[in-house]
Design a protein around this nucleic acid. Structure first.
Lengths: 221, 221
DNA sequence: ACATCATTCAAGCGATAACTTGAACGTATA
DNA sequence: TATACGTTCAAGTTATCGCTTGAATGATGT
């Protein structure tokens, strides 16, 4: 009667295939890094602590699911997200996990609320205040990620250099730190340190991938 | 230096747990049915063709991931989505799959474009034309799903009854059919049959879960 | 109390996934 | 051409998943 059974099942299977690709801790971490821009297998293996072979296999799995694309550049193979919408998928997945998993809520409470009492500043707010010269925006990611794209007007101060470069910062202005995204704690760490030195500091909501996904301007190089 | 490694990994693991719960064809299908409203294990097993024990295990897996909740009603255990946001998660997952998986595109082309040349009508459009009395809206899902909630003014004509009830339909009005969602082909089948009988018919975009998620009014009973 | 029915649990089997190791492939440099 | 290095492939081990079967649990009705 209804001929939909077969193709419907096939579609469910495709959805499941994409979901299964997201269903491993290491692949989520790889995607989180790739949300910053394209990376070589070696760089990803180093960032995640995986063996090359293992990272390569996970990356191929993600590519088979259509989430990643790869291109060759010299002796390197560079992977990148196949689509900007994948950032949105990760974001919705994160929201669901936040709402549904008690342990996530507990972790957030412990690592954000406990260490970073102030609310993060929204992106729209930030643009406004930056134009008014009220805030100094710092990018605390490694410099290579800064070079691949950053918030206009932001200063690159990787977390490692923060303590040594405090004199560059204006003690009168509020300092806004950002990093890779909602679950990247580099900016939280920066805020904690800056406050300990007497600065007024907050972190930006989310991070670079969400900024990019929101269609806001990005400066590279 | 950065103490984020441990909790960050834990968060990635939580995201992966939620994603893994979506990573099986049968669980996607169960969620698709549960997007219509709460269902007993027996009903879900019947709808999906799974054994009771198997369906039960998949449902428990979804519940452990925080996607479902269960309550007891007499001798039945009724499962429901833990959160309306899960519909959104499924929707984004579907969008990603559509963009990324060639086979999904091919399936859609074959089963939608091939059989249903006209574009589906949007929800806003539908509301407007229904108020103007220009269209007849029919709900081709099984009656039990209609009873749990349907578009205001819609007539329940399960697909099985369609051929027998053609005289109820106004040949002058355009007929809009809808069912469970983007991947439910009941409405497509209805449109094909109605056109074969000379009616002017289209399907509504998506289906009941998305209608509900869009905040549009729903009538029950 | 007993029978009934929906659901869950427990055990067992086959299949798949994750990780490691070592070798093979491709590209750049000496 | 030979070497080095990034990447991928292939094989093997361990662990987990999916499904079935049969028994156990929990609520209902006779």
């Amino acid at each position: 009667m209804c001929k939909s059974t077969d193709p419907k099942r096939a579609l469910f299977a495709e959805l499941a295939t994409v979901a299964r690709a997201l269903g491993h801790e290491h692949r989520v971490e790889l995607l989180e890094h790739l949300a910053q821009g394209e990376r070589s297998v070696e760089a990803l293996a180093r960032l995640t602590g995986l063996s090359m072979a293992n990272a390569s296999q996970h990356l191929q799995q993600l590519r088979r699911a259509g989430l990643l694309e790869a291109r060759r550049d010299g002796k390197f193979v560079l992977y990148r997200l196949a689509d900007d919408g994948i950032v949105q998928l990760m974001s919705v997945l994160r929201q669901t996990a936040e709402r549904n998993i008690a342990t996530v809520g507990a972790l957030l409470a412990r690592y954000f609320d406990g260490r970073d009492g102030l609310e993060p500043i929204g992106r729209a707010d930030l643009v406004e205040r930056a134009q008014a010269g009220l805030v100094t925006v710092i990018d605390v990611r490694p410099r290579e990620e800064f070079d691949l794209g950053h918030v206009p007007g932001a200063v690159s101060i990787p977390l490692e250099e923060l303590d040594a470069r405090l004199e560059e910062l204006d003690p009168a202005a509020e300092i806004i730190a950002y990093c890779r995204g909602a679950y990247c704690l580099l900016a939280v760490e920066a805020v904690v340190r800056l406050r300990a030195k007497g600065f007024s500091a907050r972190r930006m909501e989310d991070g670079m991938p969400e900024w990019r996904a929101a269609g806001l301007p990005v400066v590279a190089g």
